[in-house]
Each structure stands twice: as C-alpha cells, then as structure tokens.
C-alpha cells in the first residue's frame, strides 16, 4: 500500500490538491483514495473513502471537554491513535497496491511540538506496511523573494525532519500569481524593494517578471539567493545565509514543484514525482509482469 501525507499551512490548498490528484488518477488509470484526517475540516471537493469526522470532530471535543481549538485538535489526533479500530478498518478494506492520500490538519505545531503525527506515520509504516511519503504545500504568493524562499524551505524542512519520510515540496496556486494584477502583486511583498519598477511595469512585463520569479525559486541557484539576502538583511547574518544555503543545497530540499489545480500537467508531474519517491511503479510492474522476474 502507498500513501502520501498531504501537509501545509491552512489555506495552502491541501484539499484541492487531493481532489486534483484523485481526478488525475482517474484519467491515467491509477485509483487514488483520499482519507480526510483533519477533524476541523470544513468542506472539500473530493469524495473521501474515510473521514476522521466520522470518528471525532473538533467542535464536539471543544464543546464536550471545553477545550480551545488547538487543544481539541490534539485531542482528536490522539484519539485517532488510541482507537485504532477505525484506521484498521480503512486499511483492511484496501488492496495491496492501493494508493491513499491523507489530507492532514494544517497546524504547524503538529509537525514541531507534538508526537501524534509522528506516531501515526510510524504506525501505518510498521504495523500496516504502508509506504509513505510527505507532500508539503506552500502557497506560491508567500515566496516572493529570497528571504521568504528561505523561510518557506526551513518550515518545510522542520516538517520533513520531524516525520522522517521521503518528502516532496510543492509550490501551490502558481496560477494565481499570474492572475494577480501589477498592483496586487506590488502589495504582496516587493513593496519595499522595488516600488518604482513594478509600478511602471506593464501587465505583460509583470507577467514575464512573475515567470522569471517562479523559475528562480523552482530551480534555485543558491549562491545568487545568498547574494540577494546579503542585500536584504544585516551583514551579521551573512554566515547564516551561507550555512543554510549549504544545508538546502546538500539536502536538495530546495526543489519545489509547481502546481496549480487548473494545470493538469502539473498535477500529473507531481503524481509522477511522488510515485518515484514511493517506488510505486517498480512494485506494480513486478506484479503486472511477473514473467519478467
């Protein structure tokens, strides 16, 4: 069995990603089941094969135990681990080479402070022999310059380190970047760096600039980002930029894959990348063509 854990801050597009992958799976003949594990989820477009809210919801917990939103969430996740029957039922209903997406809660604390998600990963890997990879989504609009790119990569790295599974970083909503007018973009992050240039830029120019910007962060050249950071921040941080740059380069976490729900190809590419991490096709080929063994 194979699984992607879909993570990312609230609003980064986790549920939409799950829907898009499920839809794409149908087109290419790869059945993808989605399990919602966010007990505070509101709505999603995909049809879940299971939903943690059948088991427990944040609002019930908040009401009954008089906990705040965070405390309730932790309680729900711990409840999931305690009452393994629910999870076991889902997994026993699956075939050996079924493919699952877990739509995870967004709270960063779950990936830095608390043990429950790590225990969950350990459980499905070791008890149920599920092969797991992490998919971490970040909204492209928050990666406007070198400093924010470093910030995003470090957040992704914190989650990656915590879970200890192969990891894919995804830059989501790239289509929205294109749609933004010069003015909107102007207010999003470059406000203080290049005001006059963006103001004068025509729509076409700004679209080109966005393409370039995206290209810079999808295939980042670390030395040039470090140089940009030197201009953005105090001189005393120089050694820090270099060391983090080295870390990002060495561990290849710097690679972000672009994704937009409107672009079928980007969804296909992501599924391919995740399949590579999970060695999905290797396993399947062996079973489909046993004579090749």
């Amino acid at each position: 069995m194979f699984a992607q854990l879909v993570m990312g801050p609230a609003g980064s597009g986790k549920s939409t990603y799950c829907y898009a992958v499920q839809q794409h799976g149908q087109v290419v003949g790869q059945t993808v089941h989605v399990v919602n594990l966010d007990p505070a989820a509101e709505r999603f477009e995909y049809a879940p094969v299971a939903d943690i809210r059948e088991l427990v919801t944040v609002s019930d917990v908040a009401e009954e135990l008089n906990l705040g939103p965070n405390g309730s969430l932790i309680y729900c996740m711990e409840y999931l681990l305690e009452d393994q029957e629910w999870l076991e039922q889902i997994i026993s209903d699956m075939a050996e080479d079924d493919y699952l997406l877990f739509d995870m809660p967004g709270q960063v604390e779950l990936y830095t402070h608390f043990e429950c998600i790590r225990q969950f990963v350990y459980l499905i890997q070791h008890q149920y022999q599920v092969r797991v990879c992490g998919v971490f989504l970040l909204d492209a609009q928050f990666l406007a310059d070198a400093a924010k790119f470093f910030a995003g990569s470090l957040t992704a790295m914190a989650a990656m380190l915590h879970l200890g599974v192969p990891h894919l970083n995804v830059l989501s909503k790239v289509d929205l970047l294109h749609r933004q007018t010069t003015e909107q973009y102007h207010s999003l992050g470059t406000r203080f760096e290049t005001p006059s240039r963006t103001e004068e830029a025509t729509a076409a120019e700004s679209e080109q600039a966005l393409d370039d910007l995206l290209e810079r962060f999808l295939n980042p050249d670390i030395p040039s980002l470090v140089a940009e950071l030197e201009g953005q921040m105090d001189a005393r941080y120089r050694a820090l930029h270099e060391r983090i740059g080295a870390l990002l380069e060495e561990y290849s976490i710097v690679q972000f894959f672009p994704y937009s729900v409107a672009d079928e190809d980007s969804v296909g590419e992501l599924l391919l990348q995740a399949n590579l991490l999970l060695q999905y096709d290797d396993e399947r080929d062996v079973r489909v063509h046993p004579e090749l063994d």
Binding site: Y111, H113, T155, A158
Partner: peptide, 18 residues
C-alpha cells in the same frame, strides 16, 4: 528533534519577517 524543528521554525520566522 522537537528542539530542532522548533529552531528551524524560529529561523524561518527570522527570514520571513526580517
């Protein structure tokens, strides 16, 4: 690891806000 994730997050905050 909790320590490290927290410090990575703190470091990310430094870059994000400057």
């Amino acid at each position: 690891l909790t320590f490290t994730s927290n410090m990575l997050y703190a470091c990310s905050m430094l870059y994000r806000s400057r």
